[in-house]
């Protein structure tokens, strides 16, 4: 992503607050932040695609939270008919017996229930990757960009190293060594993906640091923390969200890819492990597409929602991209 100059200075007009006393400052800080959010939301909600993304993610989050109530069966409970495992049962709308909405797997698990429960790891991986990548990236960027000098140099060389690591091979190596589990997938994704937000946000911080109101605050003796949290952080917030939203996508796709290769968490059902099992049992060859297509669609829906929200933020940060301006 190219560097972005000319981001709107959302907070320039809030300059005067610095002179107020500390008792009010917390309340004002809260107001300041909530104004930021609501202003951004005003821009975002005009874009139907962003709303679609937000709704989809919310929907999947609800599904994940209420999975046990929505799924007719636990995800790895075998279905029996008399003494026989109900393997490869067709969906109920396709002449299947037992009333399974999407039929059963080769092992006799209910596919629909697996799909419902599969939303949990996907969202956990996606959202934690998002929060951690964007969070770490932003903190590094603020520190490097604000303090500059040697700190900046060291941090940016670390970013360079992180940029030298190919994503999927590195994640595969890490997960293989640490052991296949969701925690390790998240860890590996975060270790690699904070780099993007760190580099781009840092250059933003560099330019904001030089702006008159920041310089003015420095002159009045405001603490570093105050300057960072009041003047700089709110301005780079859209970028943080932008990279957070993209990290949802990276996290989910990486988890699916790693599972597909056979390094998924064997103790949990995720969309990625579902696809791997379907592939192992040749679901496509047997034309049982109801086992194979839905997890791919679900992954794509969540990922594209992340992208759509991210794209919305991209337009917040870079008005040149907004249509009709």
């Amino acid at each position: 992503m190219s560097q972005r100059e000319g981001t709107r200075e959302l907070f320039e007009n809030l300059e005067g607050y610095d002179e107020l006393d500390d008792v009010d400052s917390r309340r004002r800080a809260i107001r300041l932040w909530s104004e930021t959010f609501s202003e951004q939301w005003e821009i975002l909600k005009e874009d139907r695609l962003v709303v679609f993304g937000a709704v989809t993610i919310t929907l999947f989050s609800l599904i994940a939270i209420f999975a046990p109530f929505l799924a007719p069966h636990p995800p790895t409970e075998r279905m029996w008919d008399g003494g026989m495992i109900m393997q490869w049962e067709n969906p109920l709308w396709y002449g299947g017996e037992g009333g399974y909405l999407l039929g059963t797997t080769a092992e006799g698990y209910d596919i629909f229930s697996q799909l419902i429960f599969g939303s949990r790891p996907a969202l956990i991986v996606g959202l934690s990757a998002a929060v951690l990548c964007a969070g770490i990236g932003t903190i590094v960027a603020l520190v490097a960009g604000y303090y500059g000098g040697r700190v900046d140099d060291i941090l940016m060389r670390i970013v360079d190293v992180a940029y030298g690591l190919p994503l999927l091979p590195s994640v595969i190596l890490l997960v293989a060594m640490l052991g296949p589990s969701f925690l390790n997938v998240i860890l590996a994704v975060v270790l690699l993906q904070w780099r993007a937000s760190a580099r781009v946000i840092r250059s933003q911080v560099l330019s904001i640091r030089e702006r008159p109101y920041v310089q003015a605050a420095k002159v009045t003796g405001a603490s570093d923390w105050r300057i960072i949290s009041r003047h700089i952080a709110p301005n780079i917030l859209p970028l943080t969200f932008l990279y957070g939203a993209f990290a949802i996508a990276t996290g989910i796709l990486t988890e699916a890819g790693v599972s597909f290769i056979g390094l998924g968490d064997p103790s949990q059902v995720s969309w990625g492990t579902m696809l791997q099992t379907a592939h192992t049992y040749n679901a496509m060859y047997h034309q049982t597409w109801w086992w194979f297509i839905p997890p791919g669609i679900c992954i794509a829906l969540v990922v594209i929602s992340g992208f759509l929200i991210g794209r919305g933020y991209e337009e917040v940060t870079n008005p040149a991209l907004r249509g009709n301006n």
């Binding site: 597909f260 696809l275 496509m284 791919g296 829906l301 990922v303 992208f307």
Partner: peptide, 15 residues
């Protein structure tokens, strides 16, 4: 463009 990056490539390949 977003769709292209949203579907897992291995899934597209298998389809």
């Amino acid at each position: 463009a977003l769709v292209q990056r949203s579907f897992p490539e291995f899934w597209v390949g298998l389809v």
